[in-house]
Design a protein around this nucleic acid. Sequence first.
RNA 1: GGUCGCUUAGCUCAGCUGGUAGAGCGCUACGUUCACAUCGUAGAUGUCGCAGGUUCGAGUCCUGCAGCGACCACCA
Length: 933
Amino acid sequence: MSQELAPRLDPRAIEPPRYRAWQEGGYFHVSADAVLEEGREPYVIVIPPPNVTAVLHMGHGLNNTVQDVLIRWRRMQGRAAVWVPGTDHAGIATQNVVERQLAAEGKHRDDLGREKFVERVWDFVNETGPVILDQLKAIGASCDWERTRFTLDPELSHAVREVFVHLYEKGLIYRGEYIINWCPRCLTALSNEEAEGEETAGSLWHFRYPLAEEAYGAAETAYEAALARRAEEAEGEEAETPAPIGIGRFDDGRWYVTVSTTRPETMLGDTGVAVHPDDERHQALVGADIELPLTGRRIPIVADDYVDPTFGSGMVKVTPAHDVNDFEIAGRTGLDVLDVMNPDATLNDEVPAAFRGVDRFEARKAVLAALEKEGLVAGREDHTHSVPHCYRCGTVVEPRLSDQWFVKMKPLAEPALEAARDGSISFTPPHWKRVYEHWMENIRDWCISRQLWWGHRIPVWYCTCGETIVAREDPDVCPKCGGAELEQDPDVLDTWFSSQLWPFSVFGWPEQTDDLKAFYPGHAMVTAPEILFFWVARMVMMGYEFHGEAPFSQIYLHGTVRDAQGRKMSKSLGNGIDPLEVVERFGADAMRYTIVSQCAVGTDISLDHEDVEAAFANGRNFANKIWNAGRFALLSLGEAPVRPLSEIEGDLELEDRWILTRTTEAGRAATSALERFRLHDAAEGLYHFFWGEICDWYLELVKGRLGPDADPASREAARTTLVTVLDRAFRLLHPVVPFVTAELWSRLPWPAGESRPDDLIVATWPDGADGFVDAEAEGSMAEVQSLVGEVRRLRKEYGIPEGERITVHVTSARAALMDALAAQAIALERMARVGSVEASAGTGVGAHAVLESGAELFIPLEGVIDIEREAGRLRDEMDRVEGQLKGTRARLANEKFTQNAPADVVQKERDKAAQLEEQGGKLREKLASLEGG
RNA sequence: GGUCGCUUAGCUCAGCUGGUAGAGCGCUACGUUCACAUCGUAGAUGUCGCAGGUUCGAGUCCUGCAGCGACCACCA
């Protein structure tokens, strides 16, 4: 078997068959019985369901690699580890994709009608839905595929219906008017995410609104108050620009107030003007009326906290039907709500005849002209602000008043907030806890209705008799009048309404299934911080509302994948990396290691899309290194079984005892890191253990003992040690690089008489708790390593030819070290070309060094190198350094230079002098040791 | 504007509870003695953003400043 191993790892040859074998072996699936009958402790992660239309990108690569590392690790720990996969129906995104398809055929969804359109989306979803899940298999995701779910599955829809009705009956779902984002071109509502803000240079206009005559008295009072306020401020030291008064008189003596807007056309829908309740300048005016220009309407002045008294005049025109904040002010103050626009954003019949039917931007000009004519425009200034645009067509989004369904969030948020405070849920990195709490404390009601066709239809029916029916089962007749003419609410629910139930809906809730009993609540939630509020927080709320506890206990928020310039990878920027291409070229192991090694808590991951090979070189090289070390070991070990560790313990040599100790420590460190979600620490620690300790030292030290000429007892001790160490190392590395480790592990010889797990994927995790430990061996090895390092360094420094075998003298070393060195003679020869080590000071011409332990090392150079030539080389070097130093010192002694040259140039010169001095010192020492002996 | 975070080697970043500055990539030199050139050995490079403070001791804690970024609200 071993002979078949190629000198280079070919991931394409080993990964797909290995994955198939795992799947066919049923290793990813755990039944409820494992928990309920066998009493195994569960470990559950539910996948953040990707959009059903999505194509795998690096963000998924990161998210799912992290989850798979955790699941594989816990599975090896013996937990009943279940990772539930699935997809999200993603209402708007999916509907858009299909609508684009239709548009390409020259059709609109209205041409098909609701039923046919939804059928068409289903066809599309059935066809493309599983793609992204299949793609996850390529990166090694060990999901329990038998549990694959879709948010629109009948069972999950059943859960949605139950939750909606439950919340409605509890009074937590209500219907109300609200301002939504509306695209006047697409004639559809948009979610906040779909209304993309764009910095736009615009104008801020200031208008004068005449006061009603009976308010003149109040105006005068307010005017005096404002003047007094200004005088007061003028006395203060920091009054740079006096606060505007906001109240004034026209030439003919009429009073007016000043308001500002970026959208003049909306003034036709104004129903009031608001001031801050504590604003001394304007208090007297509260309750007074304004004669709204152009309309002939009278509107009141009201007081509301929303108004910022320091902005503009401190007075705000209120247009409730066309601005979210204004709408909320109206709700609090009782102002009328006047909708002045048609769905296509032309003005409707509520406005004066001259403006009816006019487009909003034309109306803007017309309103400005009309106000200008009446002398009511007080000024204009440039104003840059963010204007929301439709992400599909780029049209400026219009806030529009409409009837929507809402969830009252405050009562739901309370236990979810408490969960964070009392530690029932933990956050990694921890600072997200405060962000979460802040959001929960200031939570606002959630608008859950969407004017779409694709999604969970709102389970509400309206009867001609006026009755509203909210029901778990579709009603046939009106329970009140018995009529059968019921009409279901046309809207569907926000996608997040169903995803928030994911942690328990995937297990069959509201039915009390065995799965639910066995696997709920889950454990870790691994996701990106962007959806902490959309999704994570809501899942916690639902967990408490329906189960009285959190749906998971640990929230791990990983970073974002960025390109070399630090930009987020995205389709539109074209800076993405296709994970499948990476898997194809370098293997899933390479991709996984590269990702995990960069996955430090709280940091983003950067990968250069322009040099994919360099970006994943680290992971590819490591996977290949594992492969080659394994290949070498397998070839050297042969296929014969090894002896159990207990039988050969007496024959263990220093390097065996050392590497076994290091293996124990590696297990401890990796376990501790994983427990704290420090995946990067775990990966890098294991990388160093495998490459820096097993490969660089142990394999080199043990080579001689594995050959046919070696002493049989020593050879068996080495074989057992090597098998033991590789077995543990492959186990520890398996969660991060599952394929290459499993492939090699399956070929490892095994201790005679010991039972062998069926597959590495279910081998017990070696946490190091009861591993082999020999502290003294560690100390001795450290000294051997230190000696080899110094010898290698000195060899290079003095130009000792690579092939030249040397004698090394060591003084003041511990006896144990000398023993160790004697035992390592073959290895020392191999690793540093040390022919012999002698416990003496050594004499004559040579190279000196001091080991970390304090022992002194001496290498005679007589007859080894051409002393005269080396000394001559050093003298030449010396001359050069001293020459440069002389010049530098002369420059520094020259006052003209030090005083006139730029400071940094002088400093550089000083640094150079210091550097040269140090260099000269070293050369002198070296020269002395060569000449003096 | 609110909240939070970041600033350490040429690049990307580690450095968890304060105790002699690290990794990967890149760079330089040498090396194919048969696991691996996707390799080995050795080497160079850091006033740890700036200014103060606490401490025996600060990259690490505190304060201020500067620059960058994220999220939320987008301010009439």
